[in-house]
């Protein structure tokens, strides 16, 4: 696009984005054990770990959602969900109640096919396809419930639509020595993903996946039905993304550089609190 955008174009783009947000469904993966947090997670799920005095970790993600204008949220739980369930309540503290808004706890359940505990991130979504189907969204935003960050998801959804992508993954640069903890991506000059490796022993890229994905809902459902339903591909990073890439799906990288911490370890949890009390942190 060239030339300055006119007021008229700006309003029309804004209307399209508002519509895309209305047609989006967010799913938060909140089932992880987070065992590296030791005693902090003996009696609660990692997203329910208290943070910053009055918060719990999942507050960051929920607040990002409502501040981004996303109003339909499912939270997938599995591990010790009680304090999380109590904390979320009916969602009113995040404005997520009303005629078109909701936050719903989605515990594991037994279905017709003898459902079982979730085998991975993709499997967890696969087992809740009924929830997605009920909302019939155009876009599904997949999030983690245990990250400390402040992000507006609306521009990411906007980028996904403009890129004509099947899936868009939020990515950021980290020091190369940390990259092996994450999924790493290679991108072309237009930010389309040309390589994806989950937790490589020897990383060749320091551009890492933040575990925040925007899927076109139709594509998500079709790929999970094709690959995950057989039990062969239970995880996005290990199975779904490599297959999408080799299958020719359009995968877009949305680079984001704000403060973000996956407080997966006691050290990271502690450091994030210190970041809180230090000024001048972005």
């Amino acid at each position: 696009m060239s030339g300055p955008i006119t007021h008229r174009e700006e309003l029309r783009a804004g209307e399209r984005l508002a519509r895309d947000l209305r047609h989006s469904l967010a799913l938060i993966l909140a089932g992880g054990v987070g065992s590296r947090l030791n005693v902090l997670v003996r009696q609660r799920a990692k997203p329910a770990v208290p943070f910053g005095g009055i918060y719990r970790l999942i507050d960051f993600t929920l607040s990002n959602l409502i501040n981004s204008g996303l109003e339909r949220v499912g939270i997938l739980t599995q591990y010790l969900p009680y304090s999380l369930t109590d904390h979320i309540g009916d969602g009113r503290h995040w404005g997520l109640v009303g005629r078109t808004r909701e936050v719903r706890i989605l515990p594991p359940h037994q279905g017709a096919s003898g459902s079982d505990w979730y085998l991975g991130t993709a499997d967890a979504i696969y087992r809740n396809l009924g929830y997605i189907h009920r909302h019939d969204p155009e876009f599904v935003l997949l999030l983690s419930g245990d990250h400390v960050y402040h992000m507006d998801y609306a521009p990411m959804i906007d980028a996904h639509v403009r890129a004509g992508a099947d899936v868009t993954i939020a990515v950021r640069r980290v020091p190369m020595e940390q990259a092996s903890d994450f999924g790493t991506v290679h991108v072309d000059r237009d930010s389309y993903i040309v390589g994806f490796e989950e937790k490589p022993a020897v990383p060749t890229s320091n551009l890492i996946s933040m575990g925040i994905y925007v899927f076109s809902a139709r594509v998500l459902v079709e790929r999970l039905m094709r690959w995950t339903s057989t039990g062969a591909a239970p995880d996005f990073g290990h199975h779904i993304f490599p297959r999408m890439l080799s299958g020719g799906d359009r995968m877009f990288a949305y680079e984001w550089s704000g403060y973000w911490e996956d407080v997966g370890t006691l050290r990271a949890y502690f450091d994030s609190h210190m970041d809180l009390v230090r000024a001048e942190k972005t």
Binding site: I5, E10, L11, A13, G14, E15, L17, A18, L21, G69, A154, P155, D158, A159, R162, A163, D190, S191
Partner: peptide, 11 residues
């Protein structure tokens, strides 16, 4: 490709 900051329409 660059993306301008589009703001959802507010009415």
């Amino acid at each position: 490709m660059s993306f301008r900051g589009v703001k959802p329409l507010r009415i």
